[in-house]
């Protein structure tokens, strides 16, 4: 700004200097409008203008305008194709994003289903296992019961046998009489069946 001021100040001084130096008195202050179009200069000037213009036109057409036109057209095409390709790329990207999101959603749903499935499977397996265990346990319990029953029965039978034997011996001693083996067997048999029915009733 300061430089501009300085330059304009110098210019100003230069411009008013002629006036300050003094103007001579002589000189034409009269305008000569007729000199604006003297045929002696107007005709050559017009011819020169036409010739020069067309020369300039053809020379510049070769040297400048062709290249400028081509440059402008190339730029236009370039910009248009760039915009088009950018739009295409954006459309592609949008589509890719949509696809990706769709796939992601699908994968999420799939994995959820799989987890659900696995959970159900596990539940089922667990249920099965529990059921089997329970069944086995029940079987074992039953078997044990049966065995106990059998053992009890066997023990009772033994006990009856022993009791019958003992009671027969006791009865024989009481009767002082030798019971014959056949009688003995019969007696045992009788008492056994008695005890058996008793015990069965007593159950």
């Amino acid at each position: 700004m300061a430089k501009l001021k300085r330059v304009s100040a110098v210019l100003f001084v230069l411009m008013i200097a002629p006036a300050a130096l003094g103007a001579p008195e002589e000189g034409g202050t009269q305008a000569h409008a007729e000199l604006l179009a003297r045929p002696e200069t107007a005709v050559p000037a017009a011819i020169a203008a036409i010739v020069m213009f067309f020369l300039l036109f053809f020379l510049l057409k070769k040297m400048a305008w062709g290249a400028i036109l081509k440059g402008l057209n190339d730029r236009e095409t370039k910009i248009r194709t760039e915009i088009e390709s950018a739009e295409n790329a954006r459309a592609l990207a949008t589509k890719a994003l949509e696809d990706y999101q769709k796939e992601l959603a699908k994968a999420r749903a799939d994995s959820n289903a799989m987890i659900q499935q696995a959970r159900a499977d596990a539940q089922r397996v667990a249920d099965e296992l529990r059921a089997r265990n329970e069944a086995e346990l029940a079987g074992m319990k039953n078997r044990a019961k049966d065995e106990i029953e059998a053992a009890k029965r066997a023990a009772l039978t033994e006990l009856y046998n022993e009791t019958a034997m003992l009671s027969t011996q006791i009865a024989g001693q009481i009767l002082h009489r030798e019971i014959r083996p056949a009688d003995h067997a019969r007696l045992v048999e009788e008492s056994l069946s008695q005890i058996g029915s008793l015990s069965r009733n007593g159950d």
Binding site: G27, G28, A31
Partner: peptide
């Protein structure tokens, strides 16, 4: 200074080189 004397001074087409018949070839 005189350039300001005749207001049309700058607008005349001055002949620089003229043919003998008065027509200019360079103005």
């Amino acid at each position: 200074v005189l350039a300001g004397g005749d207001p049309l001074h700058h607008n005349y087409d001055y002949p620089i080189l003229s043919l003998p018949n008065g027509y200019a070839i360079l103005t």
